[in-house]
């Protein structure tokens, strides 16, 4: 048993930290991509892709500046007026955390509070000498500390479960978006041989979900676009894959159901999605259309968030 508003704050705190981390990964991958030699004939703007992956292309468009490293970093990383920037996410996470401070372990609270205090170092107009890499690494560290402290010290009860559900719903959303932005380079007919550009594109996708090394360990062969899709959608052993996210979501929802002695639509929906991901084969993804599949998944994942909120009185 816990206060519904506490559950809500914990759920969103976790989502915001996870979102900040995803943004940092997307920006990191874009930086790398934008550094590849122009002679390879890249006609796509990596900074626009980054905005798309973050679901921010439209919002950025209103800011009325060409997408460049500086303008996209300003928007996605540092802009306080953009509610979905990294700094805003961390600020919002700290706001949620502060409201439920007693429900967090001291370490988790301190990790978020310290991040919030350090944020001042990076935000504002004084960041001319900003080191982008240093900032992105710092964001990943914050997320690691928040999650690690919960993993290490948090009692395994509903508070923990709601925080984990928040993390994995957010993570599933992010992975699906990253894939969807680049789905065209993963289509088998696109280029089975794969030029250098594709090679960079594929590695950028894997990088943005920290799966570059994992790919080689799992498949022990050079990049094949369908295997990349397989890894990020269907492989449960890959921690940022959709299947892995849903394995976790289903598990933690089951824990809640067990503790409360009652299950409902959230449990059913999560199990269904999880079962579908488990039973699907790589061919199915492409037969149905990868883009269509991902769009549908993103919508379903969103809906699950709302179902959970309703079932546990979070709203």
């Amino acid at each position: 048993m816990m206060l519904a508003s506490t559950a809500n704050d914990i759920f969103w705190m976790s989502r915001y930290v996870e979102r900040a981390e995803s943004l940092a990964r997307i920006l990191g991958a874009a930086r790398r991509m934008s550094a590849i030699p122009q002679v390879l004939g890249d006609e796509t703007n990596e900074w626009e892709s980054a905005l798309s992956a973050a679901g921010q292309r439209q919002a950025f468009g209103e800011a009325d500046a060409p997408a460049s490293e500086k303008s996209v970093f300003d928007w996605l990383a540092f802009n306080d007026k953009n509610p979905s920037s990294i700094t805003s996410c961390l600020r919002q996470a700290r706001f949620n955390a502060r409201a439920v401070r007693p429900a967090l372990t001291t370490e988790t609270w301190e990790a978020i509070n310290t991040a919030w205090l350090e944020l001042k170092r990076f935000s504002g107009s004084s960041g001319r000498a900003r080191d982008y890499n240093q900032f992105l690494q710092w964001v990943l560290d914050v997320s690691l500390k928040v999650n690690g402290s919960a993993f290490r010290n948090q009692l395994r009860n509903d508070r923990y479960w709601f925080s984990r559900i928040g993390v994995y719903i957010e993570r599933a959303d992010n992975t699906a978006r990253i894939l969807d932005v680049k789905y065209h380079v993963l289509l088998p007919e696109h280029s089975s041989v794969g030029g250098s550009l594709d090679y960079y594109q594929w590695s950028a996708i894997l990088r943005s979900v920290s799966a570059l090394t994992a790919y080689h360990w799992v498949y022990r062969q050079s990049f094949k676009p369908w295997l990349i899709a397989d890894l990020l959608v269907l492989k449960e052993e890959m921690p940022r894959s959709l299947a892995s996210c849903y394995q976790n979501i289903a598990t933690y929802l089951d824990e809640l159901a067990l503790a409360y002695g009652r299950q409902g639509p959230a449990q059913r929906a999560a199990r269904n999605t999880h079962a579908r991901l488990r039973n699907a084969r790589t061919e199915d993804l492409f037969q149905h259309g990868l883009h269509e599949f991902l769009e549908e998944f993103i919508a379903e994942n969103n809906k699950l968030g709302m179902t959970i909120a309703e079932q546990y009185n979070l709203v």
């Binding site: 048993m1 816990m2 206060l3 519904a4 508003s5 506490t6 559950a7 502060r98 439920v100 401070r101 007693p102 509903d158 709601f162 809640l256 409360y260 009652r262 546990y312 009185n313 979070l314």
Partner: peptide, 30 residues
């Protein structure tokens, strides 16, 4: 929040509470 923590009780705001039949309740996940 410090006191709620040390007491091991819930920290509530007005929106977490409601009254039914002259009894006070908090809204929980259950």
């Amino acid at each position: 929040s410090f006191l709620a923590d040390k007491l091991g009780v819930e920290l509530v705001e007005g929106r977490d509470l409601f009254v039914r039949d002259d009894e006070l309740f908090m809204r929980t996940t259950e």
